[in-house]
Nucleic acid binder design. Structure first.
Lengths: 296, 296
DNA sequence: CAACGCCATACAATTCTCGTATGACTTGTT
DNA sequence: AACAAGTCATACGAGAATTGTATGGCGTTG
């Protein structure tokens, strides 16, 4: 049922031919190729048939190239080099050793990334990591739009159509200027913060209100700001008690403020690594996921 | 006895892959390749095994490329284009449609070359003809030294190690100024030229002397010159009877001289196309030989 | 002049590649 | 909701292609 097929030059044939051209001898080339001599003669003849040209003049002591052979040798080495490089590169991409990884990170988590093994990825040659920062809804939007491969966000978030892996749980901190210190040495409850002016990041407002309500505590919002770091700065200036997740500490100067943990678990957040369930994950992205596993 | 051989990416596999990439579908690609679908699936899987990478994400309605697949597509098209161009070019050289042909021509025969089908060769794109002129011994020396592929010379010549094909037989002419006219209307013999001053090209001297001796005629050399055309010019000026082969006529102004054929066959010469017997003849050179066949 | 080395051919064995048949799965329609 | 249509993967058999061993011709070298 199989129809005899017409000519199709093989890379193998080119390798054979190059070996012959470089050894100036069929037998020696066969040794170099770890095959016996007759198949090499056969394949050379085959190649010549396919090209309709004599490529090698068989002398009694040596095999030399014809004009056509010289041309083919030039080209064949180029083709083989290109094919070899291609194989190597494609394998590299396949193993996640090459490529571009786009990462969307909630700005309030960005401080943690350098502590993960992700730095290995970024420092790999031929791998570049493109980081997009934003708040959690923005990151999710990037993910949805396919702008980024992987997101690092903070709970709570809408996870429809997403797969995620939760990482470190972060407690909510209260950064208190000395004048406003309340609570025990390590912890403070919402109730203890009743009536105390609070400096709050906008994205936390709803979550904080809900937690205070549940604790039957009175929330006195002194100020709502966009960025947690600003909240911390203002607290240091005496504007009130700032509420911010743990991550903030390494990147902010809290001056002489007291740092206490808020006891209510409802204000704890978790970081999560998320990606679209139906999206193709490149090997590089998969490797990234594996490395981000150490986040928690 | 045949050892299972390790991976070797085929150009065929690349063609298959490119078809799949461009059709975004395996079945459609198979139609385009005029093969059935299962082998195509098989070969794709094979290619992926060899590269250790998923190249195509098989969707229910379409096949899309992974990152590695996109890279491979880029490279594969380049490789295939290069291979195709190479095949075309090598075939071109093989058919003598491409290359450089070096031709050594006896200057006294040079006038004939433009009348042959060799002009076809010279006007072919990618073919250039390099012409070296000289006298017959010089041309033979070029041939011996490998400076030229083919020579066009005039008899007699030493033909050791040469192959040749004789072409047109040229008779020797006597160009007579009116004052020196002898002989019948068309022909003249050596005997008739006895004592008549002769203007002779150096390369003919020996041959002419021998012929006159054989005819028991007395040769009176009035002048020996290097170039037949000069001999002719001087004859026109009355210096004597010039002896020159037929070929000279189209390229020389004989003024009011009489042109007669020398009856002795010994002074006829033949043009010959010669080449080294043991030298590799490129397809272009072979094609040239075929075209020069029309010389006679 | 015989031994040696290189290349080509002959033949057999095995692997490779292709086609047909078939099943699993998804999508769009009745 | 069930069915038809289409795509892709697997199973299997047939033919072609590639490889190895054996062998002979031919020119060179001791």
């Amino acid at each position: 049922m199989q129809i005899p097929q017409e000519a199709c030059v093989n890379l193998k044939q080119l390798e054979y031919f190059v070996a012959i051209a470089e050894e100036h001898q069929i037998t020696a080339a066969a040794r170099r190729l770890h095959i016996s001599q007759p198949p090499l003669s056969y394949e050379l003849a085959q190649l010549e048939r396919e090209l309709g040209t004599t490529l090698v003049r068989r002398g009694p002591r040596s095999a030399t190239l014809t004009d056509a052979g010289k041309l083919l040798y030039e080209r064949a080495t180029r083709i083989l080099a290109l094919a070899q490089a291609t194989k190597r590169d494609v394998e590299g991409v396949g193993k996640g050793m090459t490529g571009v990884l786009t990462l969307g990170v909630d700005a309030s988590c960005a401080g943690l990334v350098p502590g993960t093994r992700l730095v290995e990825l970024a420092s790999t040659p031929n791998v570049s990591v493109e980081l997009r920062e934003g708040d959690t809804p923005q990151v999710l939007e990037m993910l949805e739009g396919g702008v980024v491969d992987i997101g690092v966000v903070r709970t709570p978030f809408a996870s429809a159509g997403l797969r995620c892996r939760y990482a470190k749980t972060e407690r909510m901190l209260a950064i208190m200027p000395p004048a406003l210190e309340v609570g025990s040495e390590m912890e403070v409850t919402c109730t203890q913060l009743s009536g105390v002016p609070v400096v709050l990041a906008r994205r936390l407002e709803e979550q904080v209100r809900a937690t205070f309500d549940e604790a039957k505590a009175e929330l006195s919002v002194g100020c709502v700001v966009d960025d947690e770091r600003t909240a911390c700065t203002w607290a240091r200036g005496g504007m009130g008690v700032a509420l911010a997740p743990e991550t903030l500490l390494p990147v902010t100067d809290t001056g002489d403020c007291f740092i206490k943990v808020i006891a209510e678990k409802g204000l704890s957040t978790r970081q999560a690594v998320v990606w679209k369930a139906d999206r193709y994950m490149s090997p590089l992205a998969q490797r990234c996921l594996a490395l981000l596993g150490d986040l928690g």
